[in-house]
């Protein structure tokens, strides 16, 4: 039996924090936060052993509201701080929360290398196709032809596909959901946290205020409806042609594989170094 919203609120929100939060009414970030909390609760992780690290942007504010060890870093750098925390204290469950611009533009380099390194971290990327907090400028995931405050004449660049980027970069576990599929999202986040290795969950989310409004996609309800209509499971996607997949969102587990984990490998390095022993300096 899943935990109720009221129980989540009591158990995991910071009650000494100055609410209200910064998110607009209808924002998908709250749904992601709820899914994350249900996943953490489902895994019965002690609050003291969870670290949430975020970057900058609307998504970056999420850890502030939650009663864990929380860190709000610089723009795009959440994974670098998370790497240091995990290496210094491997027993902690370190979860990075990023936005699309955060993870794939300014933090793109850190993202691909964190995936390649396969450290035991979890990255949740809220992809709303826009820089919302700064006023609706185009991001690396803004679709071709869309309008934003810096592409009023139509966007001329191709969009990144974050989850596929993570697969190619070598992440151990990669999944995608949308904010409409809240139950699935919680389940995927749970799998991601449980996975030993670098795990990524990309969540397609609605920014109806900065993105939807300018592109005639309606409000929050209409955008969520479109996620429902356009989502196809990974399994079903394999039977569809490229043309049929145009405009669709593939949801589910895209990659789940076993690869050397860098903390475990480093433990072996320590053993080897100690066996050699003595002073290996100059």
């Amino acid at each position: 039996m899943r935990i109720s919203v009221e129980q989540i609120r009591r158990k995991y929100l910071r009650h000494d924090k100055k609410f209200p939060h910064v998110w607009c009414p209808g924002c998908g970030n709250g749904i992601v936060m709820g899914a994350l909390l249900r996943a953490i609760d489902g895994l019965s992780l002690p609050k003291d052993e969870v670290v949430l690290a975020s970057g900058i942007g609307c998504s970056g504010r999420m850890p502030t509201y939650l009663d864990f060890n929380t860190l709000h870093t610089t723009h795009g750098r959440a994974l670098t701080f998370a790497t240091g925390i995990k290496l210094a204290k491997p027993s902690l469950n370190v979860i990075a929360i990023m936005g699309d611009g955060d993870a794939s533009a300014i933090g793109g380099n850190h993202f691909i290398h964190a995936a390649r390194r396969n450290l035991n971290l979890t990255a949740i990327i809220i992809n709303n196709s826009i820089y919302g907090m700064t006023g609706g400028q185009y991001s690396p995931t803004t679709p071709f032809g869309s309008k934003s405050t810096t592409s009023v004449h139509g966007h001329i660049e191709q969009a990144f596909s974050i989850a596929e980027l993570a697969v190619t970069s070598g992440a151990g576990f990669v999944a995608r959901s949308t904010v409409y599929h809240a139950e699935l999202m919680a389940h995927l986040i749970e799998m991601a946290i449980e996975k030993v290795g670098f795990s990524v969950v990309e969540v397609i989310s609605n920014c109806h205020v900065q993105y939807g409004r300018r592109n005639q996609l309606g409000g929050a309800v209409e955008m969520l409806q479109s996620y429902k209509d356009n989502a196809v499971t990974v399994k079903r996607a394999t039977s569809l042609t490229e043309e049929e997949l145009e405009g669709k969102i593939t949801i589910g587990v895209l990659a789940d594989r076993e690869m050397p984990i860098s903390t475990e490998e480093y433990e072996k390095v320590r053993q080897r170094a100690k066996e050699r022993g003595g002073n290996v300096g100059c």
């Binding site: 750098r77 290496l87 210094a88 320590r270 170094a273």
Partner: peptide
């Protein structure tokens, strides 16, 4: 590695100091 410490070569200097600050926050 001999002192139970950790060495890591990061992808750039931005990441290097980020990791150092993270490690310091973890004690």
């Amino acid at each position: 590695p001999q002192t139970d410490g950790t060495f890591i070569q990061m992808e750039d200097e931005i990441a290097s100091i980020g990791a150092v600050v993270g490690a310091s926050l973890a004690g």
